[in-house]
């Protein structure tokens, strides 16, 4: 289905469903959302060696909302997510072309400080990965690293002890991640003793501790049971009141439940349709998207 041909030497591609790439593009290029764009992605190509993982993806992510990225395995949705905070820089064979801007600033400029960038664009992974430290230290580790908290001996000697600030921060972000009531009496316990769902909420709290603008989540609930999943989903919706959340999920019903807008990627790293989530799931414009979400093709 994703086979493409060049017609008459133009770059108009024709799929076996008869859709031209121009028509497909039109399906979502007119998409207008309320509010401002937080992230603007323009004509993004990603290669792993010679293999193209994303082709010409352009997509604006609205501020303070949940954007879901869906598509079959290998469609490039996780690659796209990792481009947003330059996680692909860690992969030697990865090459990124195109532009990503955060609040109008180019993410792929040479002078960008990657530590600062990832502080503003945090990430939560599929498997909960808390540090093998106390619950409290999991939260305060990032701010300490960034120099926003100082609670060491030297700080105390110098009269700059942020212990009170640390306590306030730990409580604030654990409350924000809907975990405080479950862990407030055991903040010094090892985080690895928490359940999977609690660990994942701790990882979200950890991401919030450095005060990000954007939170990227790659299959954040796929390793969790239905109740833990429901808590993560509730949390994602609440976070969108203050943060811009981008979620990759295999679970289409989850995308339908939690997101404001949905982007559908299909095999070959092509963004096929992007729009309001209810429109995508009730009336997709692209036949290929309809076939994919109704399970006729995968």
């Amino acid at each position: 289905m994703s086979e493409t041909d060049t017609v008459d030497g133009t770059d108009q591609r024709v799929t076996t469903t008869g859709e031209t790439s121009e028509r497909v593009r039109e399906a979502w290029s007119d998409y207008e959302f309320a509010g401002d764009a937080k992230l603007v992605v323009d004509d993004l190509d990603v290669y792993y060696g010679d293999e193209r993982a994303l082709q010409g993806v352009s997509l604006d992510v609205p501020d303070e909302s949940v954007t879901a990225l869906i598509g079959p395995s290998g469609c490039g949705k996780s690659t796209f997510l990792r481009c947003l905070n330059r996680m692909n820089d860690r992969i030697d064979s990865a090459r990124v072309e195109g532009s990503v801007t955060l609040d109008g600033e180019e993410v792929y400029s040479d002078g960008v400080n990657l530590v600062e960038l990832r502080k503003r664009i945090g990430m939560v992974f599929q498997e909960p990965n808390p540090f093998p430290k106390s619950i409290r230290d999991n939260i305060s580790y990032g701010p300490r690293k960034h120099g926003d908290l100082d609670t060491g001996l030297l700080a105390r000697l110098l009269g700059r002890d942020d212990t009170d600030d640390e306590e306030a921060l730990v409580e604030r972000v654990l409350r924000r991640a809907a975990l405080w009531d479950e862990v407030k009496d055991r903040l010094d316990d090892n985080a690895l003793g928490l359940s999977g769902g609690q660990q994942q909420r701790l990882c979200i709290a950890r991401a919030l501790a450095v005060d990000p603008d954007v939170i990227l989540m790659d299959e954040p609930a796929s390793a969790l049971d239905p109740i833990a999943t429901a808590k993560i989903e509730d949390l994602i919706e609440e976070l969108a009141e203050d943060y811009t959340v981008v979620v990759v999920t295999h679970n289409m019903q989850q995308a339908a439940r939690i997101s404001d807008q949905t982007a559908v990627f299909l095999t070959g790293g092509e963004l096929v349709e992007y729009g309001d989530t209810d429109q995508i799931f009730e009336n997709p414009e692209s036949q290929r998207v309809e076939d994919y979400i109704t399970g006729k093709f995968g």
Binding site: M1, L266, T267, D291, Y292, K296, F297, G298
Partner: peptide
């Protein structure tokens, strides 16, 4: 794409 029809559902 590989056709994976949900036969039971379509029926």
């Amino acid at each position: 794409m590989i056709p994976v029809p949900r036969e039971e559902f379509q029926r």
